[in-house]
Simulated scan of single mutants.
Amino acid sequence: MQRMAFMIRLKPEKIPEYKDLHANAWPGILKQISACNIRNYTIFLRQPENLLVGVYEYHGDDHDADMARMGEDPETRKWWALTDPCQMPLESAGPGEWWSPLEEVFHHD
C-alpha cells in the first residue's frame, strides 16, 4: 500500500460548484476509483488560499497503469470535463502536470 497526496488550486468562483459535484459524486465515478485500487480517498480544501489536497491509499501494483485506465474511462472523462474547469495547476507545476504530487515527510499510525 502506498499513500499518495496531490495538490491543486481551486478557482474561487468555482468553490460552490466543486463542493456540490463532490457532495453528489456519481456512483460510476466512485466505482471507477475503487476499480483502480484507490482506497480512503479524501479531498481537503484550504481557504482562503483555495488549495485542494487529495490524499488516498493505493493498493495496486502499477499506479501509472491504473491512472491511465481511469483516464480512459468515458464516465471519468465526463466527470473531469466538469471538475477540471474548476481547478488550476499550481504555479510550480511541471510541464503537463495538473495535480502536483506531494512528498510524504512524516506518517504515524
Score class of each variant (00 low, 15 high):
Arg9Tyr: 10
Gly94Asp: 15
Gly28Glu: 15
Val53Leu: 15
Trp99Asn: 00
Leu52Ala: 06
Gln32Trp: 03
Phe44Ile: 00
Pro85Glu: 06
Lys14Phe: 09
Ile15Met: 12
Arg9Ser: 10
Ala81Phe: 13
Asp20Val: 06
Leu52Val: 03
His22Val: 05
Pro85Met: 08
Pro74Lys: 10
His108Phe: 13
Asp109Phe: 03
Phe6Asp: 05
Thr83Ala: 14
Arg77Met: 09
Glu91Cys: 06
Met88Ser: 14
Tyr18Gln: 04
Pro101Asp: 07
Ile15Val: 15
Phe6Asn: 06
Phe44Asn: 01
Leu52Glu: 10
Tyr41Asn: 04
Ala25Leu: 15
Pro48Glu: 06
Trp26Pro: 01
Pro12Phe: 10
Tyr56Ala: 08
Pro89Gly: 14
Asp109Pro: 06
Ala25Asn: 11
Pro16Arg: 09
Gln87Glu: 14
Lys14Gly: 01
Leu10Met: 02
Pro101Gln: 13
His107Asp: 11
Thr42Glu: 03
Val53His: 08
Arg46Val: 06
Glu17Gly: 00
Asp109Val: 02
Met88Thr: 13
Asp66Gln: 05
Ile38Ser: 01
Leu102Asp: 05
Gly28Ala: 13
Thr42Asn: 05
Ile15Asp: 06
Glu17Trp: 14
Cys86Glu: 05
Lys78Asn: 08
His108Arg: 09
Thr42Lys: 04
Pro12Gly: 05
Gly71Ile: 04
Lys31Pro: 01
Asp64Ala: 11
Glu104Lys: 15
Asp84Glu: 14
Cys36Asn: 15
Ser34Ile: 03
Leu30Asp: 12
Trp80Cys: 00
Gly60Ala: 05
Pro74Ser: 06
Gly54His: 05
Glu17Val: 08
Gln87Asn: 12
Pro16Thr: 05
Asp64Val: 13
Asn50Thr: 03
Arg9Met: 12
Lys11His: 04
Met4His: 09
Ser92Ile: 13
Ile33Glu: 01
Glu72Tyr: 02
Leu10Lys: 00
Tyr58Asn: 03
Gly60Lys: 03
Trp98Gln: 12
Ser34Thr: 08
His63Ser: 10
Arg46Cys: 08
